[in-house]
Amino acid sequence: MPIVVRAFPLLQPVEAMNAFIAALAGERKQEAEQFFRHYGVSHESWHLQETGNGPWVIAISMVDDPAAAAACYANASEEFHCWFRAQVQQLSGVDPQQAPLGPPTTCVFNWFDGERLGSNLCG
């Protein structure tokens, strides 16, 4: 299954990101689950990384068809989808309607243990 990795600068306080995450895991959990399934996402994780240039969020997704999901997500008009996009743009400055898969990413190194089944996430 294809993996999509994105890195977003966090332009708002970490507390604003935590509020977004709390909504996804709390009162909007069911909508979030439907949202991810709608786009063929089987794994979604976000990782906060503190850098000398401020915090960044690294997002990792396993998606059935990233190109199809990106086009659908960029043009979605459902309330939750629009709210989700607005949160991403407010927190990072990245417009998901212009860059639905986030800032462009290129895999520059991929090592995996060929003796361990399923260890190659990028291939």
Rank of each mutant, 00 (worst) to 15 (best):
Q12G: 06
Q12S: 10
V14G: 05
V14P: 04
N18C: 13
F20E: 00
I21W: 01
A22E: 05
A22N: 13
A25P: 05
E27D: 13
R28G: 03
R28D: 03
R28Y: 02
K29I: 02
K29T: 03
K29R: 12
E31C: 11
A32K: 00
E33S: 10
Q34T: 07
Q34C: 10
Q34F: 12
F35I: 00
F35N: 00
R37K: 14
H38G: 05
Y39G: 00
S42W: 04
S42M: 09
S42P: 07
S45F: 03
S45Q: 13
W46Q: 08
L48M: 13
Q49V: 15
Q49N: 10
E50P: 15
G52R: 07
G52Q: 08
N53K: 10
N53M: 14
N53W: 15
N53L: 15
W56R: 06
V57G: 00
V57F: 06
I58C: 10
I58M: 12
A59C: 13
I60D: 04
I60L: 12
I60S: 10
S61W: 03
M62F: 12
M62D: 11
V63D: 06
D64F: 13
D65M: 13
P66K: 04
P66N: 07
A67Q: 11
A69Y: 02
A70M: 06
C72S: 12
C72H: 08
Y73K: 06
Y73D: 02
Y73R: 05
N75K: 10
E78W: 11
E79G: 07
F80R: 00
W83D: 00
W83P: 00
F84C: 02
R85C: 01
R85N: 02
A86L: 08
Q87L: 13
Q87M: 15
